[in-house]
Structures are given as C-alpha cells and as structure tokens.
Simulated scan of single mutants.
Amino acid sequence: MFKRCYALLIIVPLLIMAPKSHAAYAYFGLEPDIVTNYVSNSSRNLGYVRVTVELMLEDASFLEAAEHHAPLLRATTIDIFGRQPEEKVKSLTGREEIRRDCLQKLRQLMKQETGSEMIKDVIFTKYLYQG
C-alpha cells in the first residue's frame, strides 16, 4: 500500500508538469483534384496527372487562412506538377520528391502571406497518371 502511494506521489506530478504532446492538427483538401499535364518524353504526347492533395495544418486555427489562400495553393501545386518530367511523375521516388517540393514551396508561400508556415505536411491521397 505504501509503495503504491509513493509511486503515485512521484508519477502524478511528473504527468502534470510534462509538456503536452497533444497536437491539434487539421486537414484541408485542395478541391477539386489537381488535374494537369506534365512534360512527356516525346514532344508529340502530353501526359496528365490527377492528384488529390490534402494539407496537414499545424493547428485547426489555420483552416480559415488555408481556405482563403486555396487558389494560390492550388495554382502553385499545379505549376509544380506541370514542370515535372515523365520519369519523376511515374516513379515512387520522384513522387516523393514532388511531394517534398510542394511542401517546401507551399510553406514558403504561407510564410510570406500569413507570417506562419502553417503547413505541417502535404499528403497525396490519390495519384493517377497517364502518358
């Protein structure tokens, strides 16, 4: 009995003083899906890609700002995909590079526009290509 009380006296204050790891992430989808052409190996054919993009925001309070800047976020994402070569669009490692490029560029834009990077991550939930 004494050991239990002693353990509670030590553990409870530690739990109270521990920093909160509770994250209030929010998700914002760029609607509708991103559909754009990409640079194909042959100049005669254009490929296209269709991607569903979800933005993981650092806090739910950023949802309003993300909605306000959605046209800028969409245009930037479309621009990034439109400049990619076919090999990059079709490979898994290339897809990851594109995702990181989007994350870096969107964070940079939000820092300029709002003073906060606000975007924790960029997630591609659907990724289709043809070309």
Rank of each mutant, 00 (worst) to 15 (best):
G115E: 06
Q104W: 05
T77E: 00
Q84N: 10
F81W: 05
R95M: 08
L73I: 09
R107C: 11
H68N: 12
T125P: 03
L72R: 13
Q112P: 00
L72M: 14
Q130W: 03
I80T: 09
P85L: 11
L106V: 12
T114N: 04
T93V: 04
M118A: 09
G115S: 10
R95D: 00
G94P: 02
T77W: 01
A75L: 07
D101Q: 15
E117M: 12
R99D: 04
L92P: 00
Q112G: 06
R107A: 10
F124P: 01
T77M: 08
D79G: 11
E113F: 04
G82N: 12
P71S: 12
I78E: 06
H69M: 10
Q104A: 15
K88N: 04
D121A: 15
M110I: 06
T93S: 13
M110A: 04
T125Q: 07
S91Q: 09
Q104C: 10
I78F: 05
A70D: 07
A70P: 01
E117P: 01
I119P: 00
Q130R: 12
T76F: 02
F81S: 01
T125N: 09
I78H: 02
Q84M: 15
G115V: 05
Y129N: 13
L128C: 06
Q112A: 14
K126P: 00
R83F: 04
E96N: 14
R100L: 14
K120A: 12
I123V: 14
D121I: 10
K88E: 06
P71Y: 05
G82H: 07
F124C: 05
Q104N: 12
G131H: 04
Q130L: 13
P85Q: 14
K111E: 09
Q108E: 15
Q84F: 05
Q130T: 15
L128W: 06
I98K: 02
P85H: 13
Y127L: 06
Q130V: 15
R74S: 03
R95A: 12
D121M: 12
I78Y: 01
L128T: 14
K126C: 02
K90R: 13
V122T: 02
L73D: 00
T77K: 00
E97F: 08
P71A: 13
G115F: 02
I123C: 05
R74I: 11
L109W: 03
I98Q: 00
H68W: 03
R100G: 01
Q108K: 10
K105A: 10
R95Y: 01
G94A: 11
G94S: 07
M118N: 03
G94Q: 04
R74L: 06
E97P: 06
